[in-house]
Computed example of a mutant assay.
Amino acid sequence: MRFTLDQLRAFLAVARTGNVRRAAEELHLTQPAVTARVRTLESALGVELFDRSASMRTTKNGAALFGYAEQYLKLNSLIQRDVGRPDGVASLFRIGVSETIVQSWLPDFIAALREEFPRLNVEIDVDISRSLREQLLSNAIDLALLMGPVSDYRVENIALPAYQMTWLRAPSLAVSDPAEGAPVITFARDTRPFRLLKETLLERYGTGAVIFPTSSLSACFRLVAAGLGIGALPLSLAADYLASGQVEQFDPGWIPAPLNFTASYLATPEAVVSGRAAEIAQRIAVAYDKK
């Protein structure tokens, strides 16, 4: 009796989703390829694993195999990670990151990750949290550092320190309230921080506050420093601008809500490296938050 890891992965994907099409999307394979792997596995085991008349529901044998297959793949992942360390893992690891983290502790995280897994090939995609969530659920990335948590039963979320928000202005800009005419410079329009800020501004000032959303946080700080508006931005990212006197904090009587982030990954049996990377991300983020 011989079977392969790829056949077990195909079986688990179909068993989890109950659908060959969704399993194929998750594995980035064609539907015939997934079907062929499942059929070959059934032939090797000499049993049927799915009831084809009931939307690919597992049979009694399939249900029994499910737990063993998860353990088998997890053990394989642990062997790859631990045997022969530190050179035990040599594969592509895809990370999706919110720009807020890019502008803060991402370099320290990548350095720590590479220190533990020196042969890991890291690929980084910077995007808004909504897109990162979609990429994670479609298995296009292995780890998402985003505004979370991701509400999906397949996802493990590890909480990261929140980013406190603040109001910023150029010292030359005599504005003490968002309703005084200066535009509010902040996160891009299709992000959660923008939506929450817009709702609060509308509730407090009606249409008296104008928002200038920007897709680049670096551009936000430069625009605020140039006196072109006031900023509703993360405090920790403003440290250099505050130290140099290019911007200053001010208090209009309220502060936007903190931004909550998570290190999120699909909790599959083979997500050992993803889980360890999420733990490293949490450690680095906590250290950065204490500075």
Rank of each mutant, 00 (worst) to 15 (best):
L27F: 06
L27V: 12
H28Q: 06
H28T: 07
L29F: 08
T30C: 02
P32H: 10
A33G: 03
A33D: 03
T35N: 11
A36R: 14
R37D: 10
L41F: 08
E42N: 06
A44H: 07
A44L: 08
A44M: 09
L45P: 13
L45C: 12
L45I: 04
G46L: 12
V47K: 12
V47E: 15
E48R: 15
L49I: 12
L49D: 10
F50Y: 14
F50E: 05
A54M: 12
M56T: 00
M56H: 14
G62E: 09
A63M: 11
L65S: 12
E70Y: 09
Q71V: 14
Y72N: 04
K74F: 07
L75H: 13
S77L: 13
I79K: 13
I79Q: 13
R85E: 09
D87N: 12
G88I: 06
G88A: 15
A90H: 15
S91A: 13
F93L: 07
F93Y: 08
R94P: 07
I95Q: 02
V97F: 07
T100I: 11
I101K: 03
V102E: 07
Q103I: 01
S104Y: 05
S104A: 09
F109E: 02
A111W: 05
L113A: 00
E115I: 01
E115L: 09
E116L: 10
P118C: 00
R119N: 06
V122L: 09
E123C: 01
E123Q: 04
E123A: 06
I124N: 03
V126Y: 15
D127T: 01
S129K: 03
S131I: 01
S131G: 05
L137R: 02
N139R: 08
A144P: 04
A144T: 02
G148A: 12
G148Y: 14
V150H: 12
V150N: 04
S151K: 02
Y153R: 06
V155F: 02
N157H: 08
A159E: 13
